[in-house]
Write a protein that binds this DNA or RNA. Structure first.
Lengths: 210, 210
DNA sequence: CGAAAATTTGTTGTATACATTTTGTCATTA
DNA sequence: TAATGACAAAATGTATACAACAAATTTTCG
């Protein structure tokens, strides 16, 4: 794959932000990144610009680029958009979802207590990604993907501390999956709404003790 | 206002795309733009990159930057997102809409037959922008704004040829406005859904004779 | 000693030079 | 004539140099 240096820089920096290696409010120095990655400033700058559009960083004119913060407002906005779009995708594009992949994910979710937190975590991601990917609308896709990247950072903060929530989450996922499998997409959308509402409540609880 | 050269280039190029001065599929040459605008290639490139994120251009690696096309799929996707988000904003954030501005817009819409096409056109824009602006969710805002820019290009194509549609559109706008004024935001959302559905049908008819 | 001014340092913004790739031209050949 | 390949021209991708600005530091003066 003949990828550009800009894309390389983009991928590396994004991964560092999403993984929490760069914490919120960290200032990203262009020359430092340039030296470290062995890439000149120009592609670095372009990558940072791209990341700004995903709202993963804020470019402060003449000051620098700063890893964006995840405050309450951001968390609320992220969940709001997810609750609008993910059920919508199920209703509109449910039939386009890959059933085989669903079954694979379901089997992992069913063994939530055995497979461990990390596998569960990843499988959760897979489910949402699978649903998101079924949507052919480019504009909707960009919106939800941007939001979903931020969501990964939120989950890093919550850390899924409660195993109780993990089990509940798994059964909610299964409810969504089962509805899709019997091709009742309205029910699937409702199950997703329920799931997101619960996740929202759990997140509120863990992060803000509300 | 101490705006950067990148922003200047961005503003100029964007205006040219939205106004139709640059037609779809036009290749945008970086050095040509650089010479014409008296700005070096670096800010020009950054501006084009920004425009790519708004899907107003496509950057083809090693080939160049091309003004994006408005084909049937794009038109469908745009309307789909508008029909999802605009009514949602009314339902969720209706109370935040500036009522005074609404009254001003209403008076123009009421005289649709007198004020002429252009004023009508602009007032239509104002209404949708006003509603969009009432939404405080940054993620939703970016999504709908991106879509609304493209929508301007669609309207350029349809050219609002039918005066019948113009009159109908005005009365639909008034239905939305009146519902907001009496603070019945559910009704307002429904009126908006109706309006967008009709616009969608009219657009289909004009552009694709479907 | 403290505050304001001047200077230095470091960072981003912009311009330009160089590298790489694509594309168009034109001669060559089957 | 049509296809092919070498070559030239032009475009984008990348690196680097310079300019403008902000912040930190030092100096100067009350």
């Amino acid at each position: 794959m003949a990828t550009s240096l800009k894309d390389k820089a983009y991928t590396i920096i994004k991964e560092r932000i999403l993984s929490g290696f760069y914490e919120p409010n960290t200032m990203l120095n262009e020359v430092a990144l340039s030296d470290e990655l062995g890439i000149s400033r120009t592609p670095i700058r372009e990558a940072l610009n791209d990341l700004e559009h995903e709202m993963l960083v804020n470019v402060l004119p003449k000051k620098g680029t700063q890893v964006s913060e995840i405050n309450f407002d951001v968390v609320r906005d992220i969940f709001q958009v997810r609750m609008l779009i993910e059920p919508y995708i199920l209703r509109q594009f449910g039939p386009l979802i890959d059933k085989l992949q669903l079954l694979r994910i379901k089997s992992i979710q069913e063994n939530a207590e055995i497979t461990g937190i990390e596998a569960q975590f990843e499988s959760d991601n897979d489910l949402h990604q699978l649903i998101i990917s079924s949507n052919p609308n480019r504009y909707l896709d960009e919106s939800i993907r941007k939001v979903y990247d931020q969501n990964q950072r939120i989950r890093l903060m919550t850390g899924q501390k409660s195993t109780k929530r993990l089990i509940d989450s798994a059964s909610e996922h299964i409810a969504v999956i089962d509805a899709i499998l019997v091709e009742d997409y309205i029910k699937a959308a409702e199950a997703m709404e329920q799931h997101l509402a619960n996740s929202w409540k759990a997140t509120l609880d863990v992060l803000y003790h509300v």
